[in-house]
């Protein structure tokens, strides 16, 4: 059954008009996700363009985080969770038997809802990823990676004098930027962000949003958010989910100004959710 859908999807791919013009870096085709007997996502098709920010919005429990966790196979950790359908990264099926989930997660980084720095020094937080992937040859290279990552996350000036202090001692917003720096230190192609600002105050949120906009130049970002203003501010593409279905997806401007579906319209105007 699973293989059949994949084949169908593969056959269907060339028919897409814009696929040759602008090859998506991440693509979901006919993705169904089940938690035990309960189906959380129904036949989701979504293309994510390179070097753009794609926002996944929708009411709680609509499956947007579930889809996000499909992209780096974080759902593998949940024993009762089952994913069918095709998810590709750069044209490669990420569920293929020869795909190593460790290398996949190196390419697809993740930032979580609650800042979760390791209870180690700021330096070690950043250096952990490069270390386990053997990305640097010596201390000087590692130092350079740490500095570059912190600079890109806009945190360098704030922490350069206390790299050996615990990362958990930073403020919430700084911790979240530390987590972003940690994610970009392994040079991923895609960064998944699961409501990265929901635990932050407005000022820290603004900083993170600014950062997301800068990171777009180098990385592809998929962000789950509950704040429609945030989706409107940071994203170029928006996908609206409702009860496990991808209802509508397109350029952010279009979704927010001229939604086609009644449900999208209601959600954006605050009538459901």
């Amino acid at each position: 059954m699973n293989i059949m859908t994949i084949n169908e999807n593969l056959n269907a791919m060339p028919d897409q008009p814009n696929s040759a013009v602008n090859e998506p870096i991440v693509r979901a085709k006919g993705v169904d996700v089940f938690y035990g007997d309960k189906q959380a996502l129904f036949d989701v098709d979504l293309d994510v363009q390179k070097n753009s920010v794609t926002a996944l919005i929708g009411p709680s429990g609509c499956g947007k985080s579930t889809l996000l966790r499909c992209f780096n196979r974080m759902n593998d950790v949940i024993p009762i969770c089952r994913v069918t359908g095709l998810v590709t990264l750069g044209g490669q099926d990420i569920h293929a038997p020869n795909v190593d989930v460790v290398s996949l997660r190196k390419e697809v980084g993740m930032v979580f809802q609650k800042p979760n720095p390791f209870p180690k020094s700021i330096y070690d937080n950043i250096a952990y990823g490069p270390r386990i992937h053997g990305m640097t040859q010596n201390k000087a290279e590692l130092d350079a990676v740490v500095e570059k990552s912190l600079r890109r996350a806009g945190l360098w000036e704030e922490v350069k004098d206390r790299l050996d202090k615990p990362g958990t001692g930073l403020s919430g917003g700084q911790q979240q930027r530390l987590c972003i720096a940690r994610a970009i230190a392994v040079k991923p192609k895609v960064i998944l962000m699961d409501e990265p600002c929901s635990a932050l105050d407005p000022i820290a949120t603004a900083k993170v949003e600014e950062l997301i906009d800068e990171l777009r130049e180098r990385f592809t970002i998929i962000i789950v958010t509950h704040s429609m203003q945030q989706a409107a501010r940071v994203s170029q593409h928006t996908a609206f989910f409702h009860l496990g279905y991808l209802v509508e997806n397109g350029a952010t401007e279009d979704i927010f100004t001229t939604p086609e579906d009644e449900r999208t319209k209601n959600y954006i105007t605050g009538r459901i959710g």
Binding site: M74, V102, K106, M110, F112, Y128, I132, H133, V186
Partner: peptide, 27 residues
């Protein structure tokens, strides 16, 4: 040990054994 620590390590591409021995057991 908070699950967020495990998720953080796994999200960086640490294997199950690396996650357990580098982060969970020390904590």
């Amino acid at each position: 040990v908070p699950p967020s620590i495990r998720e953080a390590a796994m999200g960086l591409g640490a294997s199950k054994v690396q996650t357990t021995f580098h982060h969970v057991i020390p904590l």
